[in-house]
Design a binder for these strands. Structure first.
Lengths: 233, 233
DNA sequence: ACAAAAGTGTTTGGTATACACCCATGT
DNA sequence: ACATGGGTGTATACCAAACACTTTTGT
């Protein structure tokens, strides 16, 4: 019952290459009416000052999901944020500093003035996905994949509400979906479909900011959405 | 010094934790009429000999995709195999031997007697996805995610042909799809939809093995499938 | 003759789309 | 009064699903 092939488990694991593993966060938000991504200037060479996704190395004490949440939280101060893994990226030269394996996540947040101030302290800023600068490394690929994943989700799962205030008008949801999908949507069809979802509830609040007449404000009730795969817009 | 950084930029590489990064392959095949996964006895402790997905550590000289291809090739002898990344898995205790980050890939192969012999030499065997044993670590989760990804793809992209011989009958495609989707499919609708795809071409070969009458054999012509998103069954 | 799988069209219901006007209100 | 965005219903086209019998041929 000897195993000369397998030494101790520690020995086997010790023999393999080891890597820094990072998470990179594609943080989406509605900013100035545009679907935007949070970018910050790099603080280190190479490419000092170049706009970049937010990332961080995974610690021994945390899972990948936890690392992504931590990075997001450190930057924005937000917890309990909707995040989804996009995938792992491991091209040999993806980071010129070292062979780093990175796992990309996207997050959907409601940005507000306080958050903008906070992230501004790190030099971060919101950039519309329609006018992204040239980004370093594989960050453009990550964003593209994240946006593709978001597009796939937005009409089938109630994720859009993560980007909207607690109370929102139907027009706001529609405008958001159009930004995400990159194409216009028929107003009447959108409204009908959206309200077919039980989890979208009218309130007695009226939004008077964007129209003279005022628009009914709705809320997303996550308790009315226990059932998976029953959302559609 | 703060943990917060911009992406994975310089200056932090020496200080950060490092991990073995592995790939785990969910190798799908049609075997004995069942959609099956290839399980191999673990080659090292812990859980030496337990049925397991085939995996391997990522080398410094290879990308994640290349590592997955290498592991698949070592086991099966096959190159140029259809593979897709499922995602990264990083639970703290996912591998009791060490803190390993693993990236799962699924592969679609045409198994045959030669391959079965070869993988049998490693003690590997095909197990129906409907009757998987209790697997170690997060392998059940990986398989579940891989299968979900395959289900999403199979009706929208021509991936099923990777699991079939060069020449196949429509009934074979249908049976395969039913195995993947886990539900029966209407024969006439399936046949009509399948043949609406230009890339599925009739040949003059007749399969006489499964019926007295004989069934027309078809082939998938990848050259007729330049256009993305134009496949549907 | 008969068993066993291949092959074949039509009908129907539902869903997605296209489309234009009136409403309520602040200025 | 009028400008602005909110709110409303219908007709049509298309697509997906349901459905049963005939054909071929080896035994």
């Amino acid at each position: 019952m000897t195993d000369f092939i397998n030494s101790t488990s520690g020995g086997f694991y010790a023999a393999c290459d080891r890597y820094p593993v990072s998470v990179d966060c594609i943080i989406f938000s509605l900013h100035g009416g545009e679907l935007s991504v949070l970018l910050a200037p790099r603080r280190f060479e190479p490419k000092l000052g170049a706009p970049s996704l937010m990332g961080g190395f995974v610690k021994l004490t945390e899972t990948l999901d936890e690392a992504a949440s931590r990075v997001l939280s450190e930057l924005t101060g937000l917890d309990d944020v909707y995040m989804e893994q996009v995938g792992a990226f491991g091209a040999l030269d993806r980071d010129p500093g070292d062979r780093v394996i990175s796992v990309a996540y996207y997050a959907l947040i409601k940005s507000d003035a306080a958050i903008d101030r906070r992230v501004g302290g790190y030099g971060a800023e919101w950039v519309s996905v329609m006018s992204l600068p040239d980004l370093e490394f594989d960050h453009p690929l990550m964003i593209e994949r994240a946006l593709a994943a978001l597009r796939r989700k937005v009409t089938r799962e109630p994720v859009a509400f993560n980007l909207l205030p607690e109370l929102f008008t139907i027009a706001q949801v529609q405008a958001l979906c159009e930004k995400i999908l990159g194409e216009p949507v028929d107003k009447r069809n959108f409204r009908r479909r959206l309200l077919e979802n039980e989890c979208v509830e009218a309130t007695d609040k009226i939004d008077k900011l964007t129209s003279r007449r005022g628009a009914t404000m709705y809320r997303f009730n996550k308790d009315s959405y226990n059932d998976t795969l029953k959302f559609k817009i």
